[in-house]
């Protein structure tokens, strides 16, 4: 029944990737919110705002590619913390 073993090997890699990508996604969303906060505070120059926005957009695309590579859906990266609700927004 080697096929089954292979499946486990893949799923183990997938779960590890899900954990790592969850942490990365948490940081990405946190940085995104912080960036919005800084832009709203109006402390950044036009050029900084432009570069931060582009970088965040590229990061979001890259996250999508990484998730697709491991066959993970966005919900797989979200943790349900029971009474505390969820780690990431569920929209």
């Amino acid at each position: 029944m080697t096929a089954r073993v292979d499946l486990d090997a893949e799923s183990v890699g997938r779960d590890l990737a899900a954990l790592v990508l969850t942490i990365v996604e948490l940081l990405r969303q946190l940085m995104e919110r912080q960036a919005v906060r800084r832009v709203e505070a109006g402390e950044l120059t036009e050029e900084q705002v432009e570069r931060v926005g582009t970088t965040l957009m590229l990061l979001e695309d890259r996250m999508g590619q990484l998730r697709a590579q491991f066959g993970l859906a966005p919900e797989d990266l979200n943790l349900d913390l029971g009474p505390l609700g969820s780690l990431l927004p569920r929209d």
Binding site: L30, P83, L88
Partner: peptide
């Protein structure tokens, strides 16, 4: 549930 994702709380 709190109804607020933890990431917003952290922010």
């Amino acid at each position: 549930p709190l109804g607020l994702p933890l990431v917003d709380l952290l922010d």
